[in-house]
C-alpha cells in the first residue's frame, strides 16, 4: 500500500490536533504534519513531497494569490477544505473537495481515500483493479444484499459501502446491480449457484 503524507493547516489547535489524531489511525497515511500559518505550509511544501493538504477555507480568502501559485507548483497535491462553518460556494469551488468536522470517522476515511486514490499518474491497470474491500462489497452486492446488509456484514458504515460502490462503478464502467453481477461472474467472484 502506498504511503501518504498529509499537512493540516488550521489556526485552531483543537481542529488541527483533533484531525491529526484521527488521520494517524488511517492505515495508508504515513505522516500527518500540522501547521498554523500559511508561511509554514509554503516552507514545508518546498522541502518534501506531500499528497494532500487539509486547509481551513478562510485561507483561500486571505491568501488567494499565494494559494493559486502553490497549486500550480504542486499539481499532484489534493487540496481539501475543512468545513465547520458556511463558506461561499465560489471559495470552496477552488478546492478539490471538502470534509466536514461533523463527518464520522468512516465517512472521513472514505472521502480522503477516494481523493488519495484518484491519482492521475497511476497506470490505468491500477485504476481498473478493485481493492480487496471493493471486491468484498461487490461479491455481497451481486448476491443480492442491500447496502445496509453489506455494511453490517463487513462492519463498516452504509456511507462507506456507498463510496465503495461508486468506486467499483467508476473502475468497471458498470453501474447497475444486475450488470455488476454479470461482471462478478466473469471475474469468478461469485458462481452462478450464488446468483
Amino acid at each position: 500500500m502506498k504511503h501518504t503524507h498529509i499537512i493540516i493547516l488550521d489556526d485552531a489547535p483543537v481542529i488541527r490536533e483533533g484531525l491529526k489524531s484521527i488521520l494517524d489511525s488511517l492505515r495508508n497515511v504515513h505522516e500527518v504534519t500540522t501547521v498554523s500559518t500559511f508561511d509554514e505550509l509554503t516552507h514545508l511544501l518546498k522541502h518534501k513531497d506531500y499528497q494532500m493538504v487539509l486547509i481551513n477555507p478562510h485561507y483561500l480568502h486571505s491568501h488567494q494569490n499565494q494559494l493559486q501559485q502553490l497549486r500550480s507548483q504542486h499539481s499532484n497535491i489534493k487540496w481539501i477544505g475543512v468545513q465547520y462553518t458556511v463558506f461561499p460556494e465560489e471559495l470552496i469551488g477552488k478546492l478539490d473537495g471538502m470534509v466536514d468536522v461533523f463527518d464520522n470517522q468512516d465517512t472521513l476515511f472514505a472521502k480522503l481515500n477516494k481523493w488519495l486514490d484518484d491519482n492521475p499518474n497511476e497506470t490505468s491497470q491500477n485504476k481498473e483493479s478493485l481493492t480487496a474491500r471493493e471486491t468484498d462489497v461487490l461479491r455481497l452486492l451481486a448476491m443480492g444484499k442491500s447496502n445496509k446488509e453489506i455494511a453490517d456484514e463487513l462492519k463498516i458504515s452504509t456511507n462507506t459501502v456507498i463510496t465503495h460502490r461508486k468506486n467499483i462503478s467508476q473502475k468497471t464502467g458498470i453501474k447497475s446491480v444486475s450488470g455488476l453481477t454479470i461482471y462478478a461472474v466473469t471475474q469468478n467472484l461469485i458462481s452462478l449457484d450464488d446468483y
Binding site: G173, I174, Q187
Partner: peptide
C-alpha cells in the same frame, strides 16, 4: 452502457 462495457471489456 453497462452492456456495452461488459461486451467490450469483460
Amino acid at each position: 452502457t453497462d452492456l456495452k462495457n461488459l461486451l467490450i471489456k469483460y
